[in-house]
């Protein structure tokens, strides 16, 4: 493989790793925010799970919870 192509492959993998790595508190913050919203709509006891996987050019984000019941509430019409 020529040097130009080798460098291209190398930078591709470097950028892929850079783009994948989130900040230190990324997962904590994301889970905290999502839980805060979901707690207003569902009742659940198990801890939610989060997974982020590379998928083509982007990422597949899976967030799941097992809810025991949906919170019922009234709201004002728009």
């Amino acid at each position: 493989m020529k040097k130009g192509n080798r460098e291209l492959v190398r930078i591709q993998s470097v950028l892929e790793n850079d783009r994948l790595s989130a900040g230190d508190n990324f997962f904590e913050l994301l889970m905290g925010d999502l839980e805060k919203i979901l707690q207003e709509f569902f009742e659940y006891s198990d801890a939610p799970t989060l997974s982020i996987d590379k998928c083509g050019d982007g990422y597949k984000v899976n967030f799941s919870i097992t809810a025991s019941r949906l919170r019922s509430f009234g709201c004002l019409p728009k």
């Binding site: 020529k2 040097k3 130009g4 192509n5 460098e7 291209l8 930078i11 591709q12 950028l15």
Partner: peptide, 17 residues
């Protein structure tokens, strides 16, 4: 000269990257 000899990355590849 380096791009033609494939010793330097092609700008169009960089754009895609």
């Amino acid at each position: 000269d380096l791009i033609t000899g494939q010793k330097m990355m092609n700008p169009l590849d960089v754009q895609a990257l």
